[in-house]
Nucleic acid binder design. Structure first.
Lengths: 215, 215
DNA sequence: GAGATAAGTGGATGCTGTCCACATTGGAGT
DNA sequence: ACTCCAATGTGGACAGCATCCACTTATCTC
């Protein structure tokens, strides 16, 4: 009856942890994945890392600071999902088709992440005030671009290939982002929750159609 | 030095409160107005009502149940703001112009509420799972329609006047709602926070333009 | 080697939601 | 008019939470 604890308890024997800061972030991400931002509880995170609650204060000012870093990491995962969606694109017929596909992949990737990792998605964007920092470096994906920057680049592509008139370009990211993010919320927490993935994908394409027409 | 407490403490002398359930909801709305859903704290709410924390459990199963009712009340206020926006519309030239104006007023009212009462707006829609009940009776405004139903009615008006092709009608509320709600989030918590009201209004009209074109 | 200093510990405080047993009282039924 | 009951409010307790302060331990620097 030694295994009273649930999972694994590393039971570190060294006084120093060695990599506590990262361990806390990792644990925070894991908790956020299954329970969203409110599940990132200081005591739970330190417990996971096999350390006393106060130890966290050597690396973060308070719970909000930890949550902010976790949030940034989640945003970076959004960026990577977008990048993956673009990378998986089949070769396009011409450059305008390619630009369109890359633009649509931005939205599709965003929506895919929201559905596959709702907890992380909420953590990424639901924390009041954290979206302001969505342009910070540590919110970037492999390409070094944040989700917002990826969207901007895709829109630039639309302008370059003549699909989007130049005078419609300013502020276009806010239009696109509004629509896609709104749908994501609808799919995660709203009346569209529990929609079959295929139907959800259709809804996503529908919204992106609307954006292309209306932008 | 008798006035140690901050505000007013009714200091009820009757053992029974008389209208505690409503008093708790009112207090909850007040807290939500200034602090959002997380400010609807059971103990604070009962304190405000001049009652011991446990008394709340005679009227609500738990904090979540209270918050749900407060959320419904907030949604009803959204509906009323939309209705007010429609009611304030100047007389239109013809029926199609009227239908368009009524449709746009739905979005404009929604966005106006989000900006004027961000705390209540968050409380209305930020609570996971509560948007599912956005069609409940007590989420309705003066007309007896919920925000979703108001949007649906406005879309029906667009179809009747021939502005919106009938085959585009199904699912249109989700497209429109996605875009407008997404912008609301952007304005409240996102990079567009703190935008000058006039600019915010412009952004709203921009998004509604996109919806009209792209729907 | 000595001492500064970063990193982790232990204990305490005041919040929170919720449970249980108890007190009060208004009203229904006699 | 009297009694009893069920609804309503109280009091005390518990566990979990974030955070503060004083203390210990190990590592890095001179």
């Amino acid at each position: 009856m030694a295994a009273t604890e649930s999972g694994k308890k590393p039971k570190r024997d060294t006084y120093r942890h060695g990599d506590l800061r990262n361990a806390l972030i990792r644990a925070g991400l894991e908790l956020a994945r299954t329970g969203g931002p409110e599940a990132v509880v200081l005591r739970a995170v330190t417990r996971e890392a096999g350390v006393v609650p106060n130890a966290a204060y050597r690396h973060f000012a308070d719970r909000a600071a930890l949550l902010h870093v976790v949030s940034q990491a989640a945003i970076a995962q959004v960026a990577r999902t977008m990048e993956a969606e673009q990378a998986a694109l089949p070769p396009a017929a011409d450059t305008t088709a390619a630009a369109r596909a890359r633009f649509r992949a931005v939205g599709t990737g965003y929506l895919r992440f929201a559905q596959e990792e709702p907890g992380l998605f909420r953590t990424a964007f639901h924390v009041p005030g954290d979206m302001t920092h969505a342009a910070d470096d540590d919110a970037a994906g492999s390409s070094g671009k944040t989700p917002f920057e990826l969207l901007g680049a895709a829109l630039d592509g639309l302008v370059e290939t003549g699909i989007l008139p130049e005078d419609r370009r300013p502020g276009a990211e806010f239009l696109a982002w509004s629509a896609v993010h709104g749908l994501a919320v609808l799919l995660i927490d709203g009346p569209l929750r529990g929609l079959h993935p295929a139907q959800a994908h259709d809804a996503g394409q529908h919204v992106i159609d609307m954006i292309e027409r209306g932008i």
